[in-house]
């Protein structure tokens, strides 16, 4: 998995690509902790390049969303597609996370 960040001022846009699974989700946990420590409040998680997600990835997203909210911010997702979109729906994550069609509309939410 590759994680790349783009600070848009009003929020941080984080693009993840590849696979978010048992082996790679600790990388997202670690990155998430550092954004929160740096005081980044609102985060857009752009999943355009994400091909695969498992329950370990879902747990990382849940923990990240809770930590960001505890910090007074929001985590929103965008560009979910394919099996990633199906897994988010099967697990009911699409009922408590806001999901936008693209980066611009997600950034516009903040």
């Amino acid at each position: 998995m590759i994680i790349s960040c783009d600070d848009r001022g009003r929020c941080l846009v984080v693009s993840v690509s590849g696979r978010l699974d048992t082996l790679t989700s600790p990388d997202l946990d670690k990155a998430g902790k550092s954004w929160i420590e740096e005081g980044k409040v609102d985060v857009v998680l752009d999943m355009e390049g994400l091909d695969y997600i498992s329950s370990a990835g879902l747990r990382s997203i849940l923990a990240l969303a809770k930590a960001i909210e505890a910090n007074g911010g929001r985590l929103v997702l965008c560009n979910v597609r394919g099996m990633v979109e199906e897994v988010l729906s099967m697990s009911g994550f699409d009922s408590f996370l806001s999901i936008f069609a693209d980066i611009d509309s997600a950034v516009g939410f903040f």
Binding site: S55, A65, K66, S91
Partner: peptide, 13 residues
């Protein structure tokens, strides 16, 4: 969200 634990998702999926 605050009440979800993330447990049991693997077998559910």
């Amino acid at each position: 969200m605050e009440d979800r634990s993330g447990g049991g998702l693997g077998i559910l999926l």
